[in-house]
Amino acid sequence: MTLDDFTSACSALAAEAPARIAAADSLDAWTAVRNDLVGRTAGRLTAIMGTLGEIPKEDRRVAGQAANAVKVELERLLDERQAELATSRGAGPQIDGTMPSRVTWQGARHPVTLVVDEIIEIFRELGFTVALGPEAEHAWYNFGALNFPADHPAMDLHDTLYLGKDTVLRTHTSPVQVRTLQAYPPPVRVLIPGTVHRRDPFDASHAPAFAQVEGLVVDEGITFADLKATLSHFARRFFGAGTKTRFRPSYFPFTEPSAEMDVSCGVCGGSGCSVCKQSGWIEILGSGLVHPAVLESAGLDSTRFTGWAFGLGPGRTALARHGIPDIRILYDSDVRFLEQFSR
């Protein structure tokens, strides 16, 4: 074996190898080619290098370098081809990833429930729990216990549906104030969501049955400042951090002093627009310090305990929030409307 024989064997292998490597069309074929060319046991380059000892001693260094150069080149070509084959491995049939996913039906809470739930969530942070009461209510709980003067124009504010002489469909959630105060000692901090009924026509802006949320706080030392602070906090959490509130005199038989709370109009920011009827304010809720007569109805000492309460209509809030033009849409239950509130 001469140096020439050795180098020509190397050159022949180097000339033949690139085409064979390129022809390997699968990882299996690539493995076979690699084993044939540079395999440790049966590789042809390995066999050529096995003849290095037969070369005259003075030529071995050159021969070794020639064989090594071929090895480096073949391994480079093999690595490249392996990488090419690996990227196309397992592709199988093509997938168009832009096609739609397999979805299931999406459920949704009713928009009025969304408002109620959000109110409850905000007041829960302040330690409120949820109290409930019946819709078919004793007239005493609905009116008498709440300091409604008998046979007075104040009653005209509550067009009432009667179920009997002394049974009404409750016109507000306030009866639950008295029920709760009768059942639990102060401190009382509750929210009262529920359906209430009025003898109103079913038209674009009225419904005979609608949701109300009431809040009640009774303890020693509760003040009008607490009312203002808590409700303003609620307004900022519900309508946004920059929301301003305004309190103005009002009248409810069961609160004294009574106050209506407005929030700064979110549409115009207070400068006046059609939504706020140019006033810059939106009416949100009625509130006031609990009338001592109400505390007394529930058997509480009105010189020791004070409290405040508020009530709002989440239906109106939902209409305003989502731009729903007709209150009847909330009741129709058209799935195309309800599905708009899917999470």
Partner: peptide
């Protein structure tokens, strides 16, 4: 009742001039 007079005081003074500091409260029993 006295609360009726207190309402007149509050409104004439101005509801907006009354303080509105949020303070802690005792947990409720309900």
């Amino acid at each position: 009742r006295d609360v009726d007079l207190i309402e007149d005081v509050a409104r004439l003074r101005g509801y907006d001039r009354l303080p509105d500091t949020l303070v802690g409260a005792r947990p409720g029993t309900v």
